[in-house]
Design a protein around this nucleic acid. Structure first.
Lengths: 213, 213, 213, 213
DNA sequence: TATGAATGAGACTTCATTCAT
DNA sequence: AATGAATGAAGTCTCATTCAT
């Protein structure tokens, strides 16, 4: 809009799709897919309505792109980080939870779980994709670590699949909460403290020595 | 619709609003508020479009009514049940979780958390109402029980507020999951098993003897 | 509503159509035909919505009935009064204007001109009926009196048809005004004074001695 | 509508609102506000339904705009013309009436009085605006001229306020009539002749020499 | 590439009319 | 005769999408 004719301009042009995706993500998360207007997306991205359609076939394609483009790099990064970890299973769990939270608690990804939860019913394909690509893969990391810990005697014997979900549930809960009720009602919610408490209680709860019934 | 003159008229006026609310709740939960058409609500409730407007001023009023009418009786019942409980703090926590799940896990209320999470951004008033009337009140029950248990030496000293959230997070997570990704992606999710595991791990995790670090 | 079982009841029953017509007239005049709801008519008449349809086939029939039932008796009365008048043409004009105003200035008929003006475009049949049955007949009374006065040398020679309209225009204007802008804007409008001034100026204006150019 | 690619796009944006206003005015005058559908307005203006909403927030705003945009320039012009007039009070009255009729008798403004009369009850704000901005201002012109004429001995002493209304009443009457009953009933109404007769009778009626009682 | 005026399908909502009671 | 719950056609308005510029 006025700032033509330089390398700056070229750079911006290339960045357009990403800027649009960012705008769309923010609005989809805040208001939901159906309640978000393409006008708003365009305005927030600093382009005109028509421009959005140069890069995305339609609103649904924009949603898909938002989800997919966000998920792919995040996953790659995530699994790489995990692969490089060493140490006790307990330390690994600690690291997984911290990393997961560092990645999903803030930043662009943080709204994704809320978005997917809200739109799963209307976009089953996308929900399946998210479920397979993200949720299950992440859960597998936890589950394997738990199984390792059980095998090594660090953790007491337990249902590793359920426990993996348990490890993640508060993380998902926190990220959803932050983008929904925490904004408009439940203001005294401190995600960091909550995640710390989770780590503490969860690790105690699965400790091999802990089941002193 | 042609099929007059049967039992349609008998169904007394008094039942209509509830039937419409049920239909609306189901659809709002499944598709979200904005993506639900009033026609659908009407059709699912077995009435015509106009009839909905005999009982609810507009779509938003219907949403409010759905939430409020559902929440009020549930809350009354919930607190009554809790008040009648006796025994150790650990038993009380067990009972609270079971009851909460019995109430919110199935039946009409089960979709409410997902609905509120999805619509909080668009209906902040309603979100605040829900947060105060439901979430905080429920959390207070957990928090007091935890404080009692700590005082009695059953539980190790911990941040009772955060722990109360931790106790509830998997419950909320499970009910949200069941109405979103569990429907369209994550099919191997068994809420009952998950809740059991939560009870087990959580109680171990806060046990006074457990933190044998 | 509740006051059954007596002669009073019978009387009311017979009066129903008229009560409904009165209610309808008042609302049609105030808000116009299209903006008046049958509910309002019913409520103002103190009956239920369905009852209106016992007496009038539909909304348009109600309008027709309102106009026709009001016009017929008024006309009969008007012409009778006029037929009985004697004296100079000037006195007759005075009497006609006074009577017209007495009849149309207040009471149930007073809103009719505004109503007909507003709805003429949507109900040409009715407009034609009103035009023929009321406006033209009334104008003929004036016109004949003017012609008489001219013939008798009381009034100067002039276009009696146009003058008849001139005699009526302020009357019509006043009754329309009272039911429109006088209600919501032009509050310092005193119809009586206005009509008096009209009589005075008009009679001077057509006086045989007056055109002393 | 299929016929793209021609001169439709050229017609510059700036003209659209006026075209829509013209279409709306014609229909509002003919059928009344409530009975006019936005589709009709759009079709008559040669645009689609949605386009109307690009320029006017809603139906009521369109009505307001129609009235206000029409009134403002007309008033400016009217008062300018009057200010430039010289001569006897009688000539000024003659000029005022002729001008008023030239302006309101034909053209876009001619329907306004009928429209305002019909809708005053439903839009009191607008009625007040019209009453203050148009009716009263116009009447003041007449009233001052009459007062001048009385002071100068041209006119006999009379209630100048009432007489100002009398001067205008036939004009208003004629413009209302033309857009209502004259269309559908009273076909032998010749406004020009009527206005001429009014001028003649009114001036005679207020002439200083005329009250030869 | 980018724009934004224009479109029209489709949503919400109203209300004249019907009909079982 | 009277009611008022129910209906559904029709109206207002929105917004995803297109396309001339």
């Amino acid at each position: 809009m006025g700032e033509h004719g330089s390398g700056r301009w070229q750079r911006r042009k290339a960045a357009r799709p990403d800027e649009i995706r960012d705008a769309a993500l923010a609005l989809f998360v805040e208001k939901g897919f159906a309640a978000t207007r393409m006008d708003e997306v365009a305005r927030r991205a600093g382009v005109s309505k028509g421009t959005v359609y140069l890069y995305f076939e339609n609103k649904e394609a924009l949603l898909r792109s938002v989800v997919e483009e966000l998920v792919e790099p995040a996953l790659a990064q995530a699994e790489a980080q995990v692969a490089g970890h060493h140490g006790s299973a307990r330390d690994l769990i600690r690291a997984l939870i911290s990393q997961w939270w560092a990645m999903v608690g803030h930043g662009r990804l943080s709204g994704l779980p809320k978005l997917m939860v809200a739109e799963a019913g209307n976009f089953p394909e996308l929900a399946r994709y998210f479920s397979e690509k993200v949720v299950k893969r992440a859960r597998r990391l936890f589950q394997r670590t738990l199984e390792l810990g059980i095998a090594q005697g660090e953790f007491r014997p337990l249902d590793a699949a359920a426990a993996a979900r348990l490890a993640m549930a508060p993380l998902v809960y926190a990220s959803i909460w932050r983008h929904s009720l925490a904004c408009c009602g439940d203001e005294d919610f401190d995600p960091e403290r909550f995640i710390q408490a989770h780590l503490d209680v969860f690790l105690s709860g699965i400790d091999a020595a802990g089941a002193c019934e």
